[in-house]
Design a binder for these strands. Structure first.
Length: 292
DNA sequence: CTAGGATCCTGTCAGC
DNA sequence: TGCTGACAGGATCCTA
């Protein structure tokens, strides 16, 4: 679930907590969740935090890096020596729950007493060790396309022609076509650009492509500025959940509520196997463009 | 090559 | 209450 803005939020926040700190111990509770020998990363110091699309990279000294992908249900929670907790990723009660718990797959203990918990209900996410110099050669990183801020409308338009029969939503979810969008921001971007998610990718005009790209940037900029959809800094015993979706999302998980633009009921449909939210009035399919 | 569906895994919720 | 199927903020693998 965490998409680019959430991972960027994690990167920024985590940086202030763990930069220059040394990993004292790594505990792995689920082998599937950690690739490589965790011992190798112990007694190494955090040098930098980077992000490639939805992947977070923690660079350590001695040419080592940790690559973290949260996939659908991953979350990172930093529990420091102070009463503050910094949590981001899949929103759940884990942000305030006892840690470690049933969903804790890996934890990293730092030399100052802080602990970073990697929780992941569905075990799709992972942490893996690789050489820092090999990060950009990792197959996942390597196939990532440009992010919306550096991609031009012409580039995107060309890519859409190569997938002309796929619904536009499926196309923009593909990280090798444009990088960073997930189910939330795909829906929000398409709503913002008034494009129906089932419209065939090849039928978007250059103007529509430009608008879609602009919308993706704006939607994600706005989310990052507000700390991602799930970011939360919790004070112990404070049960508040960061429910930003209410402030932020125009259509996502708002089925049956009025469209903020025209007031018509938002509908939920299925596109590319994913739950998809649209305003049937604002996002219409042009004649002949309907996806089969 | 593209397109679409199944699949990995755990948990929750609606409906019977 | 207990069971069942659908669904979930991702990406890969398999098939046609």
């Amino acid at each position: 679930m965490p998409e680019l803005p959430e991972v960027e939020t994690i990167r920024r926040g985590l940086k202030s907590f763990i930069l220059h700190k040394k990993i004292k111990k790594i505990e792995v509770f689920c082998d599937k969740s950690f690739q490589g020998n965790p011992k190798i990363a112990e007694n190494k110091t955090v040098k930098n935090l980077r992000r490639f699309g939805k992947a977070l990279i923690i660079d350590l000294d001695q040419n080592l890096s940790l690559m973290i992908h949260l996939r659908m249900t991953g979350q990172l929670i930093y529990d420091g020596s102070s009463p503050e907790r910094y949590a981001a990723g899949h929103p759940s009660d884990n942000f305030t729950a006892e840690l470690p718990n049933k969903q804790t797959r890996v934890l990293l203990r730092f030399n100052d007493g802080g602990t970073l918990y990697f929780n992941d209900q569905r075990k799709f996410g992972f942490i893996k060790i690789l050489e820092t110099k090999a990060v950009e050669d990792d197959p996942f990183i390597k196939k990532l396309a440009k992010e919306p801020w550096v991609m031009t409308a012409d580039e995107l338009y060309e890519k859409l022609q190569k997938h002309q029969n796929s619904p536009i939503k499926a196309t923009i979810l593909d990280q090798s076509i444009i990088c960073g969008l997930g189910n939330i921001y795909a829906d929000e971007s398409l709503f913002s650009a008034k494009i129906h998610p089932l419209q065939k990718s090849g039928t978007l005009t250059k103007e529509e492509t430009k608008l879609l790209l602009k919308s993706a940037r704006e939607v994600m900029d706005k989310s990052i500025a507000s700390g991602g959809s799930t970011m939360a800094t919790y004070v112990k015993a404070d049960g508040t959940k960061g429910d930003y979706l209410e402030l932020f999302a125009q259509v996502f998980r708002r089925e049956n509520q009025p469209c903020p633009r025209c007031g018509q009921k938002i509908k939920k449909i299925k596109v590319a196997g994913r739950g998809t939210h649209i305003c049937p009035h604002c996002q219409t399919l042009k004649e002949g463009n309907r996806h089969a």
